[in-house]
Design a protein around this nucleic acid. Structure first.
Lengths: 189, 189
DNA sequence: TCTCAATGGAACACGAGTGTTCTAAAATCG
DNA sequence: CGATTTTAGAACACTCGTGTTCCATTGAGA
């Protein structure tokens, strides 16, 4: 009882994490999965799930924030202001590509992106926007390809790559196709 | 009673169509929509829905077949064997782009494409494969871009375009971005 | 106008998922 | 080892969507 609600560490933190991961994995396979399914996947009793997430909506909310966190961390690691724009985009792609679970989930649970946390433009979005603007200004990105389009396209390419992986294409090959396609799309001329 | 089950025409056919359309529209907005929601959207009693589609799964199945029909018709109209490959792909894109409802639905209801009807390669798929192979042979499509990738990418580009439209981008602009991107991706060199 | 198919709405039983409470067992930590 | 926390599982009530039945009303076509 010495630690507050802020820093959940030790057993509780690990159990919470296990439930979260199991929920992400299970819901990706079956968006309508039951709390019982998730509990089973986490090797945990259903009551325990309720102990950590009072209602189903609380679990969904936690998943949503977890996804945003992972995306944010990936964006950080990509160092958007460091180097020529096409190279940065490729780097960002590779970072995002690591989070297969998140991308699959976002596409199989469209409800997630319609949540309030996703509605407003995030800092990441703004940074990405500025990156593309920089590319336009520097002449390294085709001006015909608008910010909005490229932003959406980036995610779609990643999703497409992961679809290929699901169909037994090697990861590195899918990533290569993804990167090469993005490269060609942004190329000027 | 003079006509068999085969040719449902007149009132019944129209009601069935109305329910189907309402279901597609409603489920696109909310994949977990109730039969009551769908009935309301179709301006029809819930009982009537059950009268045309005994169980929910029957309605889903009908939607699935309707989607396959529309895709098949679009593919036919695109005349895959008629003209240079890049031009054909652009034409196909435009045909598919008309069926916004279907594309949105397929991405919001992933269960659909996992149904048996979608599992096996359709004639359309095979025709498309051959088209891309022709492009590879003729040298009009970048050999680095594999059949599987381009097939997936085509759909993803269309979905991305429709996402843009949902965010208030004019349809023609979204379609142009889509076509231009596809063109650049398949370009050799 | 008459007839019959088609519809809407109410009522009902049923199943499934959810959220809660309680108790005994197990794991953790001092 | 003993004390406390954490857990699993059973039992329960509750909600909600589903599928069915029945009946009165509507509407289209002969």
């Amino acid at each position: 009882m010495s630690e507050g609600v802020v820093t959940e560490t030790g057993v509780r933190a690990r159990t919470r994490r296990a439930i979260l991961d199991a929920a992400i994995e299970t819901l990706t396979k079956q968006p309508s999965a039951t709390l019982a399914d998730i509990a089973a996947a986490a090797n945990v009793g259903r009551t325990t799930v309720h102990r950590y997430f009072a209602e189903r909506s609380d679990l969904i909310e936690a998943i949503s924030h977890d996804a945003l966190d992972k995306i944010s961390q990936s964006t950080q690691r990509a160092r958007l202001d460091d180097g020529p724009v096409p190279a940065v985009l490729a780097r960002l792609c590779q970072e995002y590509f690591e989070h297969a679970d998140i991308f699959q989930l976002l596409f199989t649970m469209p409800d997630l992106v319609t949540r309030p946390e996703w509605a407003e433009e995030s800092d990441d979005d703004r940074r990405l926007m500025r990156l593309i603007e920089r590319g336009h200004a520097e002449g390294s990105i085709d001006p015909a390809m608008t910010k909005e389009w490229l932003l959406q396209l980036l995610w779609s390419l990643l999703y497409t790559a992961w679809e290929l992986v699901r169909d037994k294409t090697p990861k590195h090959e899918a990533l290569t196709l993804c990167l090469r396609s993005l490269e060609k799309v942004i190329a000027v001329g």
